[in-house]
Design a protein around this nucleic acid. Structure first.
Length: 496
DNA sequence: GCGATCAGCT
DNA sequence: CACAGCTGATCGC
């Protein structure tokens, strides 16, 4: 299977100065582009995506400093023996040349696939289509991999598993194990090697039955050379196993893909982030708007523990329930568990997942006996009054009231903001539900601090890019953050 | 019958 | 709003 094995030079001919493929779009000044964004609704969604990636703010140089790195896991509040669980793996990863070179065809041409899926209802339209969710489809409803999931200058994609084989991709990175990122991965995956952290790798194997031969676990804070690119996974402060992906290209370019992350001060001491100027930052912009302000995780955990203690003081027979998705938010029930000295009940499938983290503080606190502990974890979807009433009924011999917490980042309220004391629960009968702003994404201010620390040349947002107004707004924030004067440059630098 | 995927919903 | 799914319907095998 010999393709037109293009050499690097011919590839770079098709890239612009930033390593992005050219598209038939005039790259004009902002005013023209702003008008385009509004008026050109007939353009393909892919080119719209593309334009959003070409007009980022630009900045000058950054000042590099050498800091001492602190314990990476302190942000989890842990002093745990993760090293014990590390699966053996060398840095000498063998790569096979499974796929052709990095494809740079136009989006419409990327959609063709060997096996054509036929749907009875779409015969006429041969153009790309856009769904409400922002997915771009080609001829035969094969999703098109959006540009921001491809890393130019590399044969890499990030979180791009639902597009079939991505042309030219030789390594598929998975930033973390949440459905909207691993979507498309399943037992039959055969499109190429998957790179991710050990925890994520374990979950991919356990939950998705992906052929282990495709899974390549990487140690955090360890440099690997993959396809000639230096790759390092960094703790992302999101869910267990989530990583920032740091890339050093042969030509000196440096990219950082945040996956999903919650920026924090500790990241300012990551040596890689201190020692390498980032050219392009792929940024999790979930809460990139000033209206999203929420407290630190620590403050929210203190709040949750305080509320719990108050309720137990008034009603000792209270069942404490924490809602959670598949993974993430573990600290919420762990904090309660430690404060009260009680076990955590979770169903078998959740226990299996939690145990797989290899987090002994958590594993040791799990219980399969719901009636023996007043602290339960349930799917967040069951945090409704009717469901909780039923749930309480099954434990009526032990408990007579329910206090539930729904931890989510978007329990924001303009008035509440970071004022936890303003949060009011919703109660009905014996059930009380608190929405608490425990977020595993960066707040607006945390994003700003991170970007001002990193001072990348360019920023590519990876979330909320479905409409032009959002993108324009984010890019104007980026420009603002990156245009700070030299006087501010050294304000946070010190000799550590 | 089963796994994968999609629209719609929260 | 939009997190990170969930549910039910449909498709392909």
């Amino acid at each position: 299977m010999e393709f037109l094995a293009e050499e690097e030079p011919s590839i770079s001919e098709k890239l612009d100065e930033n390593g992005f493929p050219f598209l038939p779009l005039s790259d004009e000044d902002e005013e023209v582009e702003a008008n385009l964004s509004i008026s050109s609704s007939s353009e393909s969604f892919a080119s719209d995506f593309y334009r959003s990636g070409t007009d980022w703010s630009r900045l000058t140089e950054k000042s590099g400093k050498n800091f001492v790195q602190k314990d990476l896991f302190q942000m989890w509040g842990l002093k745990t023996d993760w090293s014990r669980l590390k699966e053996k793996s060398g840095n000498d990863l063998v790569q096979k040349d499974l796929f052709q070179m990095w494809g740079l065809k136009k989006p419409e041409e990327l959609t063709t696939r060997a096996s054509s899926k036929k749907r009875p209802n779409d015969g006429s339209q041969a153009e790309s289509k856009v769904t409400k969710k922002g997915n771009v489809f080609g001829h035969n409803r094969q999703r098109v991999c959006p540009f921001y999931k491809k890393i130019p200058g590399t044969p890499f994609t990030v979180d791009a598993f639902s597009y079939g084989p991505v042309e030219g991709c030789k390594a598929y990175f998975l930033s973390h194990f949440h459905l909207d990122h691993y979507g498309g991965l399943s037992k039959g995956w055969s499109h190429g090697p998957i790179y991710c952290t050990h925890i994520t790798a374990r979950l991919v194997r356990m939950c998705l039955s992906v052929n282990p031969l495709f899974i390549h676990p990487l140690e955090i804070d360890t440099e690997y050379v993959i396809e000639g690119i230096k790759v390092t996974m960094l703790e992302a402060n999101h869910c267990p196993g989530a990583a920032l992906i740091h890339l050093l290209l042969g030509d000196g370019r440096c990219y950082l893909h945040t996956g999903d992350f919650r920026a924090c001060k500790l990241m300012h001491s990551y040596p890689l982030l201190l020692n390498h100027h980032v050219n392009v930052l792929y940024l999790d912009t979930t809460y990139c708007n000033p209206k999203y302000t929420f407290p630190s995780k620590e403050d929210v955990l203190d709040f949750v523990v305080r509320i719990t203690r108050n309720h137990l003081a008034m009603q000792p027979r209270t069942l404490i329930i924490v809602g959670a998705y598949s993974i993430g938010k573990e600290q919420v029930y762990l904090a309660i568990s430690e404060a009260l000295g009680v076990q955590i009940h979770a169903n078998a499938s959740r226990r299996r997942i939690l145990v797989s983290f290899g987090w002994s503080e958590l594993s040791g606190r799990l219980s399969s006996q719901g009636h023996l502990t007043p602290l339960h974890v349930v799917p967040i979807s069951s945090l409704r009054f009717e469901s909780l009433d039923q749930y309480l009924e099954t434990y009526k011999d032990q408990f007579s009231a329910v206090l539930a917490f729904r931890p989510t980042g978007w329990t924001y309220s303009e008035s509440v903001g970071s004022r936890l004391d303003l949060i009011k629960p919703r109660s009905k009968g014996k059930v009380t539900i608190y929405g608490v702003p425990y977020s595993e994404h960066s707040s607006f201010l945390e994003l700003r601090e991170f970007v001002k620390f990193l001072r990348p040349d360019k920023i590519i947002p990876t979330v909320n890019i479905g409409n032009a107004a959002n993108r324009d707004e984010m890019h104007s924030f980026f420009r603002e953050w990156l245009k700070t004067k030299d006087s501010e440059l050294n304000s946070h630098s010190s000799n550590g």
